[in-house]
Every structure is written in C-alpha cells, then in structure tokens.
Design a binder for these strands. Structure first.
Length: 186
DNA sequence: TGTATTTGACCACG
DNA sequence: CGTGGTCAAATACA
C-alpha cells in the first residue's frame, strides 16, 4: 500500500474526480452535475464502490477498486481517495492497496497520453494486454485530462496487506514534486 | 438499454 | 459502542 498526496493549485482545475448529486425519486432532478476530472488518474480505470464520511475529516473518503477486478482475472487493486482540509491548495490523499494484475489502464494511458506520468505498480509492461478485450469503453482516457502523477515504486506485496509505501506528490501545471518514503507497516 | 455512480445499510474490528 | 469498509439496489447519463 502506498499513499499519494495530490496537491492541486488554485489556478488549476479542481482535481475532484467527480461531482454527482443524485435526486431521489419524487424530487426534481434539477441539480444533477457530473464532472469527470481525472487529475488523479494514474492510468488505471477505477470504479467507485463506496463513500464514507470519515471521523475528524470534513471530506468524505471515496473507495475505488480496479475496474478490471471482476472481468480481468481479479485485479485486487483498490484505491482510497480522501481530501485533506488542512491545506489551502486542496490536497488529495490517494491510498493504494495491492498491486494491479491487469495493467490495462496503464497500457491505455501510455497509448493515449504522451507526457503523463503513470503510477507504476510494478506490473506495467510485465503482462501483455488481453488482445481479445476490445472494450474501449473503460479505456477512454484520451479525452480526459492528463494526470499529473509522478511515478512511484510499486508495493512489493501483491496481497491486501498494507505495504506502507507513501508518496507525497504535489502537482501543478508548472512543476511536479514527488517524494516518497516507506513505512514499516509490518 | 447498458453501464457507472450514489447512497444507505450491514458487517467486522478495535 | 463507534468507526471504517464493503455490498447491493436505485438512479442518472451516454
């Protein structure tokens, strides 16, 4: 497991992956807003499966799992995204659990983006993409914003045990800072 | 119509 | 008992 702190400068677009207010039945569907900004995007495709208000935090934590976790042989990768309110430029903490075994997103990202930095889970290029998977639906990253994400080391353990890899990443349109450190999570 | 996302509820752990 | 994490049904968008 490692964590990536994404700092978004005020002048940049909001890094929020998506805003989506849903109106329940009976209510007027007036305030439906959808934004998809994949500034956090690391080249992989994530599916949100939960959101939780965290005690002591003004912002909820979002739970994502690899979109290929179900249909590509069981990619165990998961990601937690939480915004830190302690920073004037919004700081987003991306916590990764387990390694990707699919590598689909990275392949797609490399093909679609030139200058994007991909989070290296250690599986990029280590496994060929499935030739029979012609589903481009989940790999339409080319129309998204380039992810300002720095490359970090992969977690050595493929299981769900936190590997303790923490990377602080501050990104802007001008510069990218990345620092990482290991935590002994044994 | 199909797929992705939202949100509340349930379960497990400390 | 409280908090965090995951599941499943409902809803919205393409």
């Amino acid at each position: 497991m490692y964590t990536v702190h994404v700092e978004q400068r005020p002048t940049s677009q909001p890094p929020l992956c998506f805003f989506r207010t849903r109106t329940t039945s009976g209510e007027t569907a007036a305030a439906t807003r959808v934004e998809r900004k994949q500034n956090w995007d690391d080249g992989f495709v994530w599916t949100k499966y939960g959101q939780k208000d965290i005690r002591g935090s003004n912002h909820p934590r979002h739970y994502f799992r690899c979109a290929y976790t179900l249909d590509a042989g069981g990619c165990p990768a998961r990601r937690q995204v939480q915004r830190s309110e302690e920073h004037d430029p919004p700081l987003y903490v991306l916590t990764y659990f387990a390694d990707h075994t699919c590598c689909h997103g990275a392949e797609a990202a490399f093909a679609a983006l030139d200058d994007v930095k991909i989070l290296d889970f250690g599986c990029v290029g280590s496994r060929s993409p499935r030739p029979d998977d012609g589903d481009a639906r989940k790999t339409s990253l080319s129309e998204e914003l380039p992810a300002e994400v720095a490359k970090v080391e992969s977690t050595p353990l493929p299981d769900m045990r936190p590997a303790g890899k923490v990377a602080e990443l501050s990104s802007s349109t001008d510069e990218i800072h990345c620092s990482s450190s290991w935590e002994s999570a044994a």
